[in-house]
Design a protein around this nucleic acid. Structure first.
Length: 592
RNA sequence: GGGAGCAUAGCGAAGCUGGUUAUCGCGUCGGCCUGUCAAGCCGAAGAUCACGGGUUCGAUCCCCGUUGUUCUCGCCA
């Protein structure tokens, strides 16, 4: 190898190298044989260079060149030469030169490829994941993994500059009762006992605050044993941050600074220095989501005032049952939306529990189609009230409040995509604040919306127990382009308040002590007020890269079925391993 | 756990209301070709139409089930 080790990369040759002898190492990207003259596009991480085998080349070189196939790994020694003006390729960085080959060594052959290595592979995802090492050679994957690295670097750069310390926390920890399902790791030394993999470093970063590290961060791997999604993996990476002696505003400012730095450094994009803020209730009421897509308007509007003067009994019943009737006005959409297309929107609404989706079109003669006949008596009032004009489509949703806003919100989002109501290459950050601290679960008991260690806002402290549903927390989400990018809160550092929260959600003191007593114990020793946030690195990079799946920015992801086609895991293990761990496997029989 | 979509050569796709020798592009193999850069031209091989059942004279196409996969609701403090 030594004689044929590269002296330059495939991305750096320019006309200034004219006449120089160089050695390139790389992969055969394209191979074009014209009979007399023969071109090889050689690719490495840094670019592509055209190699020419001239007609007067030695028999040896001609034979080797003819044997070359896609993705052979080769070393080529040759002379750089300027291309004549007419042959310059302006689409290639190295397009003003080519390399005349004097020696070619095949370093490794390549089997027939399962799929072509192109900018973006067109093969189905299972195949891409099975041969991930080939998929990762593609230009698109290379760019995304590079962006991910750049984002991680910019993160460290910014947080270090702000006085944060990067600290590792354990990945073998104690299982916690709340939240997602834990991945469990059996202990060989302690039969019948288990570690859990962290869902996040939450408790440890809080303890680091008790320990006077003041400003902590970690690019931390987290594990949650829940069903995967396009934007969710069983294992993912978050930029975990915690600070002492801070208010929510300090966290907003720090996070805005971090995002500005990341976007500037990696994509040269200037973000606004302060992000929009929306309360949870406003977000739900106007966009039907706690992670609203804010790159287009088309707000949800209250329609209930028009319901009593109409004979449409469905909505009357909804209001009698303390539900909500909401509307969105889709500008100029009336001609484009057939009954069939509206039915498709209705299907989306139904996924969120809606029974149906009512609609009518605005025409010069009045409302038309759908529920038009019930509302034509209020045509002018409704058009004025909703700011609807001729050719608009009005969509109406009546249901309990949450179903009404979330299902219509989902319809809104889909219309935004269908009608291209925004530029998908732009970025819109927004804080969602004033989240409720508690909500009732299906059994009618209170539980924490976020997690148990979030602080109630000051003015609820005295009367928290009277109406837990009203209590807002010092809780915030950062939303980017309709994705929840980060979540955080100011934490409870006062053991008394913590006890009251446990009591509201029905956790007994012994139970709390058993589960996370070490944290509560630490709070007895002068714990400082503290708070933090944790942006998801995978999601951030995904959105920056304009992708819709987190798998496009993770080198070796699991698929949607929570498996890895490349190394075929999870897999069965040797019975001896099971025995050594004092475990017994019993696979439930599937019922028909 | 529920719902929806998809499954046709190695890869990506076409195949209209059921009758085709199952089509096209890329790739593979062979040949030709002196300037390409998505090279071109000629030729060849390559398909249990995911699997199992049903309807039918006849199924890639319709129906049921299974498997795989993607999206989604639940779930994800």
């Amino acid at each position: 190898m030594k004689e044929m080790q590269r002296t330059v990369t495939c991305g750096e040759l320019r006309k200034e190298f004219d006449g120089k002898e160089i050695i390139l190492n790389g992969w055969v990207h394209k191979n074009r044989n014209h009979g007399g003259v023969h071109f090889i596009n050689l690719r490495d991480k840094y670019g592509v260079t055209q190699v020419v085998i001239d007609e007067d080349a030695s028999e040896d070189i001609l034979n080797i060149a003819n044997d070359l196939k896609y993705e052979y790994c080769v070393a080529i020694k040759g002379i750089v030469r300027k291309r004549p003006d007419s042959m310059i390729n302006p689409d290639m960085k190295t397009g003003e030169i080519e390399v005349s080959a004097k020696e070619i060594v095949i370093l490794n052959k390549c089997d027939t490829l399962p799929f072509m290595i192109e900018e973006e592979s067109k093969a189905n995802e299972t195949l891409r994941l099975k041969y991930r090492y080939l998929d990762l050679r593609s230009d698109g994957m290379q760019k995304r993994i590079k962006l991910r690295s750049d984002v991680a670097y910019a993160t460290r750069e910014y947080l270090n500059s702000q006085g944060f310390m990067e600290i590792e926390t354990p990945t073998l920890i104690k299982a916690t009762p709340e939240g997602a399902r834990d991945f469990l790791v059996p202990s060989r030394i302690h039969p019948g006992k288990f570690f859990a993999l962290p869902q996040s470093p939450q408790l440890y970063k809080q303890i680091l605050m008790v320990s006077n590290f003041d400003k902590y961060f970690q690019i931390a791997r987290c594990y949650r044993d829940e069903d995967a999604r396009g934007d969710r993996q069983l294992e993912f990476t978050q930029i975990d941050i915690e600070q002492s002696f801070v208010s929510a505003n300090d966290i907003y400012k720090m996070t805005e600074g971090l995002m500005c730095h990341i976007f500037k450094k990696t994509m040269n994009i200037e973000l606004p220095t302060q992000f929009q803020r929306l309360t949870y209730m406003d977000a739900m009421n106007t966009y039907g989501s706690d992670k609203p897509e804010l790159r287009f308007d088309m707000k949800l509007q209250d329609f209930s005032s028009y319901v009593p003067n109409s004979d449409f009994s469905v909505f009357k019943t909804v209001l009698d049952n303390k539900g909500a009737v909401r509307a969105i006005v889709v500008p100029d959409a009336a001609p484009d939306y057939s009954r069939k297309k509206i039915t498709e929107l209705e299907e989306i609404a139904k996924q969120y529990g809606a029974n149906g989706l009512a609609w009518m079109k605005v025409t010069p003669e009045g409302f038309d189609g759908g529920v038009a006949k019930f509302y034509n008596n209020q045509f002018t009032e409704i058009c004025n009230g909703l700011s609807a004009k001729n050719n608009d489509l009005i969509l109406l949703m009546g249901a309990d409040w949450k179903t009404s806003v979330t299902s219509l919100g989902a319809v809104r989002k889909q219309i935004g995509i269908d009608r291209k109501l925004y530029d998908p290459s732009t970025f819109h950050f927004c804080w969602i604040v004033d989240f409720p601290l508690f909500e009732k679960n299906d059994e009618g008991n209170w539980e924490a919306c976020h997690h148990l260690f979030s602080m109630p806002q000051d003015h609820y402290l005295d009367t928290m127990e009277e109406n837990p549903g009203e209590v807002k927390g010092d809780l915030y989400d950062l939303v980017l382009n309709g994705y929840e990018l980060a979540s955080g809160s100011i934490r409870v550092h006062d053991p008394e308040i913590q006890k009251r929260i446990f009591s509201i959600v029905g956790i007994k003191e012994e139970e709390a002590m058993e589960k996370f007593g070490f944290l509560l114990e630490s709070f007895k020793f002068g714990a400082p007020p503290h708070g933090g946030i944790a942006p998801g690195l995978d999601r951030l990079v995904m959105i920056m890269a304009g992708e819709e799946s987190i798998r496009e920015v993770i080198p070796f992801p699991k698929n949607a079925m929570a498996m890895s086609p490349m190394d075929d895991c999870p897999a069965e293990v040797d019975p001896e391993q099971i025995r050594e761990l004092s475990l017994k496997i019993e696979i439930p029989v599937k019922e028909k």
